[in-house]
């Protein structure tokens, strides 16, 4: 299908590419401060994308959503996380040994992007350009976030995966629905905020109890022990 509105396509493609690159930036960072910074950039890219959607659809509510994203995700959440880490006695700032090396995880992330495109091809877009551009991206974010969580050993660094997933979720919702009713969106935001706060509190507990934030400590409850 030949795009009818070439300049717009460009904007969409470029913005989604930017978002993907920002995401990869998050994936390949090992240190906590590094990925937090990368996450900020990714969130900014995301709010930019949101603004583009708002512009293209002309729905003013999405501007609010974009602004909310910027405020909550780029400002509040990093603040919270920073505060948490500053309270920690011992901070695992670096992910020393993820299950899969950074190089390989970048490649796997690329494969996941391909998978996302493969899976979304069958969805009938009804010539919705926004959707065509962003749906695979958002699914990629979902997969990549998930993969990051699977790959990381430090609790603090697992949060990054969660946050990528949430970004994907947000992009997905915005792209697909052009703004679900605002109440729900705010509810989702609050949920994320509370979730992060709770996980932060949990991490404080974890570091107090175990003296570090390795997930390896959290492997006591298991069923594969020998009898």
């Amino acid at each position: 299908m030949i795009p009818t509105d070439a300049p717009q396509i460009d904007i969409l493609t470029i913005s989604s590419a930017v978002l993907m690159i920002a995401t990869f930036g998050v994936v390949v960072r090992r240190g906590f401060m590094d990925w937090l910074r990368a996450y900020r950039y990714q969130t900014m890219a995301l709010s930019g994308v949101t603004a583009i959607i708002a512009y293209m659809t002309g729905i003013w509510e999405i501007y609010i959503a974009a602004a909310l994203t910027l405020i909550i995700k780029a400002v509040v959440i990093p603040r919270v996380l920073l505060r948490v880490t500053s309270q920690l006695k011992f901070v695992a700032r670096y992910e020393l040994n993820p299950y899969i090396s950074v190089r390989l995880s970048a490649i796997i992330s690329a494969l996941l992007v391909a998978l996302a495109y493969f899976l979304t091809q069958q969805v009938p877009f009804r010539s919705d350009q926004i959707l065509r551009a962003y749906l695979p991206v958002s699914l990629s974010l979902l997969f990549i976030g998930m993969f990051t969580m699977v790959n990381r050993r430090v609790a603090l660094n697992q949060i990054v995966g969660l946050l990528i997933i949430e970004n994907g979720l947000f992009l997905f919702a915005t792209a697909l629905t052009h703004g679900v009713s605002l109440i729900i969106e705010i509810g989702v935001f609050i949920d994320i905020l509370v979730g992060v706060i709770i996980s932060a509190a949990l991490m404080t507990r974890i570091s107090h109890t175990f003296d570090n934030l390795n997930v390896d400590n959290l492997e006591h409850l298991r069923d594969d022990k020998e009898e």
């Binding site: 979902l142 998930m146 969580m149 609790a155 697992q158 969660l162 997933i165 949430e166 979720l169 997905f172 919702a173 697909l176 629905t177 679900v180 989702v188 979730g195 709770i198 996980s199 949990l202 507990r205 974890i206 109890t209 175990f210 400590n217 959290l218 492997e219 006591h220 409850l221």
Partner: peptide
Amino acid sequence: EDAIEAAWKYLIVATVGLSFAFFGITFFYY
């Protein structure tokens, strides 16, 4: 220790799971 561990796993897994559910809901809405 065990309670914290359980809470952490629960939080992470359930949150991720529910974000998938949200994808589904949005799809249905679409």
